[in-house]
Each structure stands twice: as C-alpha cells, then as structure tokens.
Write a protein that binds this DNA or RNA. Structure first.
Lengths: 157, 157
DNA sequence: GCGATTTTGTTGAGCATTCAACTATCTGCC
DNA sequence: GGCAGATAGTTGAATGCTCAACAAAATCGC
C-alpha cells in the first residue's frame, strides 16, 4: 500500500531530524533571548527591522507581510499590538483607499536600536560561531535553493 | 556604543535571512499540509512518531519532551489534547511515583500510519528534491554542528 | 533518618497564530 | 458606466505555546 511513497532512507532521516532539531532550537533560543532582553518576540523584531529599512520607514501591509513571511492576518494582529506599544502607527495609503501603511515611530526605532546589538550577538553566537566559513557559504546556497523551490513569493494566506 | 557588537557583514546578513525564510517556509508548509491532511499539527505528529519508536510504544513525559525538543509544559498540554483525541493515554510510572508514561494507543498508531506517507512525501518534495546529494550531506553536517553547539540536551524549561 | 533541594509533571493566564468570514475597494471586461 | 471577480485588510473564535507558580515525590547531605 505504500508502493507510491518515497520513504526516507536512514541518511535522509538523520538529516531531516537534525535539521528540524537545529532550526527549532535556534529560532526558539533567539526568540527567548529577544523576549527576555527586549520584550518582543522575534516576529515583531523582524517587522521593526523591515520597516526601518523601508523608504520613509513605512510599508504597505501586504508588502510587509511578504517580506516578513507572514500571513495578512498575522501581520494585522501583530501591527495592532505594535501600535498599542507605540512602536508602529498606521496611516491610510494615499493611492489605494483599501490600503494601509505601517509606519515605524521614533519610539519603535529606538526600541529596535536597543534590541539589535543583543540579538545580532545572539545570531552570531548561536549560528555563525558554530560553522566554518565554508559551511556558512553552503548554508546560504542551501537556504536559497529551498526558498526558490518553495516559491516564497506571496503572503501565506 | 556598538564597539562591542560583532555586526553581520552583508554575506552573513544574506545567509541569515535566507536561512530564516527557508526554515520558516518549510516548517510552515509542512505544518499546514499535515493539519489539512491529517488534522494534527507537526508537533503532535512528532510526538506520535517518537512514541511509536519507543519500546512498548511508551515514554516518560520528560524523555518525550527531550526527544521532541519541547518544554515539559508544552508536552503536558499536547498530551492532554492527544489523550482526548484517543491517540495517547497516560499511565503511572511503576518505578517513580511522580512519573507519567505517555502510551501510544492503537488508534494513535493508526492515525500516524495514515498521516505518514503524505507527510514524508511532503518532506521529500519540499526539502530533498530541492537539494543535490552533496547539499543534503552538507545540511546534515551543518545541522549537527548547530545541535551540538546549542546544547540540545535537556527539556526547554 | 530528616530537612533542604531537586526533579517531575500539571495548571492557568496571557499571548501569538490560524482559519474562515467579512467589508471595502479596485480592476478588467463588455 | 457597470458588473464580476480579484485584492486589501480586519476581525473573532479556536488552538497552541510560554511563563510562572504549584504539588508531589525523589534525592542529597549530614
């Protein structure tokens, strides 16, 4: 009955489980550190980062969802929360009356600036310090292959 | 003020963001597929897998938390849910009166058997089909380095 | 043995995410 | 111009996770 299923051989199994364990442990560790040190989950940090890099420090909700790899719904809830924190505000899009722009406030920029050094240090410690330069290069190629293959090009829902 | 911070250079930045996007997209895609096709999140699937591989199809809660990389609390909530689904039951540990054993039921095993082919196919399609054999090997080494480096050896909380 | 500490597992509150449903607006087409 | 369908964003309910607090039982140190 499983004649169609391309099961994983032991090597693949080992690779898959190691990858799962590593990526989960890494993201959870960084998420925990960020929550502890800056009072925000990693998803929110990413929103602030992307806004800080955008011209005018503002982005359309859909574009922000795209670059942060989240669904519209998730982003909508998240921005609502960031708005009550005073780190982001919304304004109407001038060219599309359906649209909303999320704008990074000065307080949001300050919160990001305060959080960044510790977080970057964490990324370096937990990821880059564990790998050789060749492995970092391999990881970039592998990740970019996966991103291409998965077609990460639209909001998740 | 940032003299101490080892910032990421552009290559590292690119690697980090690609990795983040890839691992998030991969896990979310598989999670969504599993939820759609088998009615369970990936975390629950993993619990069933690990129980199915254990002698007697049962494990101590702490050990199960360890191998699934979850906190005791998460596991406790999850097993409670799996118990109401009829896929797992609990029994007292005979050698430690504090302890609980999570036991995979026949219904749980059947649910796992039904879910596995589709999920494995998804892993192959979304992960292995995107990579060359050399890259798979690299990914294994990289992931194992990370796991070692992160010290994944105890429940998360 | 016995008190201090550790370990095991659960619980409840709060938060983040998902999913489906919904409104409002825009675009394409005739 | 006007209608059909697509797109933008929000909402609320349900689900899962985190964190801190807790009870019970085991272990350590003397």
């Amino acid at each position: 009955m499983d004649l169609m299923t391309r099961w994983l051989d032991p090597d693949e199994q080992r690779t898959w489980r190691a990858f799962l364990t590593a990526s989960r442990a890494l993201t959870e560790t960084l998420d925990r550190e960020l929550q502890r040190d800056a009072g925000m989950p990693h998803a929110y940090y990413e929103i602030l980062v992307r806004l800080s890099e955008a011209p005018g420090r503002e982005l359309r909700m859909t574009d922000l969802a795209l670059v942060t790899g989240s669904s519209r719904s998730r982003l909508s809830h998240a921005v609502a929360r960031l708005e009550t924190a005073g780190w982001v505000r919304r304004r109407d899009c001038p060219t599309d009356r359906r649209g909303q722009l999320a704008v990074l406030t000065d307080a949001g920029f300050a919160a990001l600036a305060a959080a960044a050094p510790g977080h970057v240090e964490g990324v370096r410690r937990h990821l880059f310090d564990a790998l050789s330069p060749a492995q970092v290069d391999q990881l970039r190629r592998i990740s970019e292959s996966l991103v291409d293959h998965l077609g990460v090009d639209r909001p998740l829902s």
